[in-house]
Design a protein around this nucleic acid. Structure first.
Length: 435
RNA sequence: UCCCCGGUAGCUCAGCAGGUAGAGCGGGUGGCUGUUAACCACUUGGUCGGCGGUUCGAGUCCGUCCCGGGGAGCCA
């Protein structure tokens, strides 16, 4: 090809109608009727169809079609036309076809595959339209999180991933050798560090991967997942409830506004998401238990809400529901007791609608040194590794609150996914560390 | 960790009561000037997850291990 034509992205084709352009990408579909041939290509930004008519392009380029296989990479040159029959809405009357690489037989077909097979092929599965759509929604969620906090004056604080101890005394931590200093653990939360930073900067947040070595085998669990956590000085539980409600509403509104094509491709009904425009119901744990019992769920006050209970409860409301003031004995050591009832913790879980489960957990933190020391004893936690944390209650302690939101559960809810493993590019599960 | 279900061609599966393996899709070859998961013809393709046992004979029955899926507990 001696002539030069602009190389454009498929998503911008509408601006080039009537012009000659070049596209670079991969073969998504091939069809041939002998003298007329169709190649549907994708480039990450969209789909476009190339039409090859014998005699309208060099013989060599027309013949090159015969070598093409699914997922081969290529460059197409041609005249852009709007064409309702073409996938993507535009097609190229091809005047040049240059293969870049001829793909080997591609394992993923446009048909039903088993989950195990697709997970083994995750590196290739990401190329499918559905997976691309999920990744774009995830990207939108992540940017919405950053924008929300940035707009409200929260400062991004990157908390460490290698930590000396458990934040919550859980034994389910990934352990690793730390040079000559014994063991280190992969972080399961940035919270304690975030509390320290909140005493420095007032309002802070972190956003990163967290790790739980739990042998959990459910649709809601990953061993490595991303969490955005926030902590704010002088925030009470009531302030926290308002913050998390605004936060989740902000994320959902952004995704609805910017990722409508993706939600459509995912066949996600937007109606349940639009319900976040209404106030989120707030219900105490005690009232929640009563409501569940009315529905015939057998449970005692003090039992934690399991998956079935969460699902039953969230189905009673169309917006996310905030359950606050759980029994303190079932909760983490750092949560502040309710002054009106010391058996309760000033905490909140947000349950996503439609049975998607807990997406947020947060609380007002215990800010009194003596009470905190007592909690450590109650939970049989060693004091020495947490002296730095206790310092926060020695030097200008103030009421403060914070929360964490699980990114994959949020994405799974927004996209209507059956399992969180599709909400992260390369999921890490109890029995899966590949690819 | 526990409870269920499964492992047969590259993929999705069938294989009835034990008698030596099949379909569709994909791949290959040929045909077709508007295809949409194209269509038509021909064709290629398997240590039936591993090991051990029962039997004249095991994909099929038994034991065990491995792997995958679904669920529980715990959590975001």
């Amino acid at each position: 090809m001696s002539e030069y034509f602009p190389i454009v992205e498929i998503s911008r084709l509408s601006r080039y109608i009537g012009q000659q352009v070049s596209l670079r990408g991969w073969v998504a579909h091939l069809r041939s009727s002998g003298k007329i041939r169709f190649v549907v290509m994708r480039d990450g930004s969209g789909l476009a169809q190339g039409v090859l008519v014998k005699g309208h392009l060099p013989e060599k380029d027309f013949d090159a079609f015969e070598d093409l296989t699914l997922e081969s990479s290529l460059q197409l040159t041609g005249l852009v036309q709007a064409e309702p029959r073409a996938p993507g809405g535009y097609e190229l009357q091809v005047t040049g076809l240059t293969p870049i690489h001829i793909a080997q037989e591609y394992p993923i077909q446009p048909k039903e595959h088993g989950v195990g097979f697709l997970m083994d092929q995750r590196h290739l599965w990401l190329r499918s339209p559905r997976q691309q759509a999920i990744m774009r929604v995830r990207d939108e969620v992540c940017r919405a999180c950053r924008d929300f906090f940035h707009d409200r004056g929260f400062v991004l604080i990157d908390t460490p991933i290698l930590t000396p101890t458990a934040c919550e005394g859980t034994t389910n931590l990934f352990e690793t050798d730390y040079l000559d200093r014994g063991k280190a653990y992969l972080s399961q939360s940035g919270q304690l560090y975030l509390e320290a930073a909140a005493m420095a900067l007032g309002k802070v947040y972190c956003f990163g991967p967290t790790f739980r070595a739990e042998k959990s085998k459910t649709r809601r669990h990953l061993t490595e997942f991303w969490m955005v956590e926030a902590e704010a000085a002088f925030y009470t539980l009531e302030d926290l409830l308002n913050l998390v409600e605004d936060f989740v509403r902000f994320i959902v509104v952004r995704v609805l506004a910017n990722r409508e094509p993706e939600l459509t491709l995912l066949e996600r009904d937007p109606a349940p998401l639009e319900a976040v425009a209404r106030p989120f119901p707030r219900i105490s744990y005690t009232d929640a238990v009563a409501k569940l019992r009315e529905q015939g769920v057998e449970m005692a006050w003090g039992d934690d809400l399991g998956g079935d209970e969460e699902t039953a409860l969230s189905r009673m409301f169309d917006a996310p529901v905030m359950v606050h003031r759980y029994p303190r004995q079932a909760k983490a050591f750092y949560m502040k007791a309710d002054p009106d009832n010391p058996d309760l913790a000033l905490c909140v879980d947000m349950l996503a609608p439609e049975g998607y489960g807990e997406i947020i957990g947060g609380s007002q933190r215990e800010d009194d040194l003596e009470i905190l020391l007592e909690r450590l004893r109650e939970h049989n936690l060693p004091r020495e590794p947490l002296e730095w944390y206790l310092d926060l209650r020695r030097y200008g302690s103030v009421p403060h609150s914070g929360f964490g939101l699980g990114i994959e559960r949020t994405v799974a809810w927004l996209c209507g996914l059956k399992h969180v493993r599709e909400a992260i590019p390369f999921p890490r599960l109890i029995d899966r560390l590949y690819p």
